[in-house]
Design a protein around this nucleic acid. Structure first.
Lengths: 328, 328
DNA sequence: CTGAAAGCGCTTACAG
DNA sequence: CTGAAAGCGCTTACAG
């Protein structure tokens, strides 16, 4: 391994000067600079990041905590984050909690010990311990998808989007709308979307049967099972179902098709997420585009802002768009 | 930030001893160890990774180079890699070439300078400069999906899988089989799969019209366009099409459906990849499962092996499985 | 079983 | 414009 000392020797200067030339800090005469640079070029020298980081307390690495690494949403987020960050010379350190919430805390600590310069967290829940940990690490921090009090957060307008979906369904004449959600410990996906549905139904004086409201776990399978349980009760069958994620909506569609229900004639279906799949299932799925990639970019930009000292906790609400397709 | 010196002071021992207690290296009396550990616990001390890495020349980070971060295949690979690596205390540093092949070389160098302990590369092409770079960095290295001479490679059996797909089509009675591939600078996806198709057709004395063989770029859109061009010529229309990726197959299906062709009655369609989507499009897509997650695990294990000094370049062929569904 | 000292490869006041 | 020196937080021979 060639080090800064080797370069210094070869160029007949001190390593101080080499460092200055490399980092464009302080004065270095043109001649010397050129000489150094050409030697760097020749040798393919690259500064040791650990030495640099030990000295400067900055690593050039941003930690990202995701609930699931292998989902379309995660991919898009990472894509957006990476686009913005890599342009500024930052690298990404990815961690995957696999939906275990104690891991969120564990990874925040781990990333801190890895000297990351900042953290972007896509959480599936909010709790005091987590909040406390975020305070403790005292690092530039952005929450993505959940609104953490006192923490810069890039959020989706879950409530408004779900109101829009429900209203759209109602306007199209559906009056018996079922719902497949996720657990309410997830404020954004679990709580907000459900409240929006419930309150919009109430606003229109549309009754909601108890057995119309089901809870899944983000998986296609759980959408299938949820739909099954909803239709088990033959008395009061819904004529539409609002699933809070595309995957669960697609699971619901599977069950409906299997049972010979026509979509949307017998039961209309909607999702959220605008997955690629939603476009290619039959019938194509009405859904909401959350612009995940843009949200990732937003989060990265917010983090960059904090890195440059603008230390105000901000709330950024990303936009969304209803995509009307054949399942309604 | 509390450092090893702080802990040493608090425990009335030298930092040498603290280091030994922390790393279970050398002798430390039970009493002292307990004392140190309780102080570590209390303070929440975490060793500085950069200092450690500067000293030991190991970072605990593995670099991964992907052609596209936001695809299902990439997600599954990363998932598998992460599963294996995180258990051994390794972190992942992800980079995305966005299909630009000069970036593969750039990222290998970058990762090296970041002191990663090893690299896993999922390349879309093979060339001498790339090969040279891999030699130069002289790091534990695993190629995933391409067979690099002299480099440990985890590969899919592209040839055999594509022979199987073609044979299956032929056995089902399809005799006019078109093909949508990708550029041949990609040995695995571009070259191998095409050769398998061509040679299997030849073996069965089935003619292949020139205009039946199209080249896409992995995108759904390019599958759509490829199918369109193939059917443009009304003289010799195929009764099946073998697309080398699910996404292109789904694009082809879109065009077929749009034009009123029945699948599989008029034209059968097959893909490769076993994407989630392939199961939920209508008709469901016949495809090949490449067990990407397992391949990722394999690659991680191979890398771990090299990290432990077993420095033999190995070739690992991952298995695959044909999934017969309704599009054939 | 424990500690003093050297050194990993950088950057950054400080001095000239 | 340039350099000597200190120091970042660790680990690891070496000595006892």
């Amino acid at each position: 391994m060639t080090t800064i000392n080797d370069i210094a020797k070869m160029a007949n200067v001190s390593r101080t000067t080499v460092s200055r030339a490399l980092n464009n800090s302080g004065y270095v005469s043109e001649d010397v600079r050129k000489k150094i640079m050409s030697i760097v070029e020749e040798t393919g020298y690259m500064p040791s990041v650990s030495a640099k980081s030990l000295r400067t307390k900055r690593s050039g690495v941003i930690g990202i905590i995701l609930p699931r690494i292998s989902t379309e949403t995660a991919s898009r987020l990472v894509n957006g984050i990476n686009d913005v960050l890599s342009k500024q010379g930052f690298q990404i350190l990815l961690t995957d909690t696999e939906l275990q919430k104690d891991k969120e805390i564990e990874y925040i600590r781990l990333l801190k010990s890895r000297q990351v310069d900042g953290i972007i967290l896509s959480a599936t829940n909010i709790n005091d311990e987590l909040l406390q940990t975020i305070q403790d690490v005292d690092l530039p921090f952005v929450s993505l998808g959940q609104d953490f009090p006192g923490v810069t957060s890039v959020v989706y307008d879950d409530y408004a989007a779900s109101v829009d979906v429900t209203n759209m369904l109602i306007q199209k004449g559906y009056d018996k709308i079922a719902f497949i959600g996720v657990g309410e410990e997830d404020p954004s996906v679990g709580y907000e979307r459900k409240q929006a549905y419930l309150q919009t139904m109430a606003k229109h004086d549309l009754p909601v049967q108890d057995h119309w409201v089901e809870t899944g776990d983000f998986s296609i399978e759980s959408g299938y099972e949820g739909m099954k349980r909803i239709l088990q009760n033959h008395d009061a069958q819904p004529n539409a179902v609002f699933a809070v994620t595309d995957r669960m909506a697609i699971g619901a569609m599977e069950y409906l098709k299997e049972q010979g229900y026509k979509i949307p004639e017998d039961v209309a279906v909607t999702g959220i997420g605008a997955s690629v799949m939603s476009k290619y299932v039959s019938p194509s799925l009405t859904t909401v585009d959350y612009f995940n990639k843009e949200a990732g970019e937003e989060a990265a930009r917010a983090l960059l802002g904090q890195l440059q000292g603008k230390n105000t906790s901000k709330k950024i609400k990303n936009s969304y768009r209803l995509i009307l397709r054949d399942s309604v």
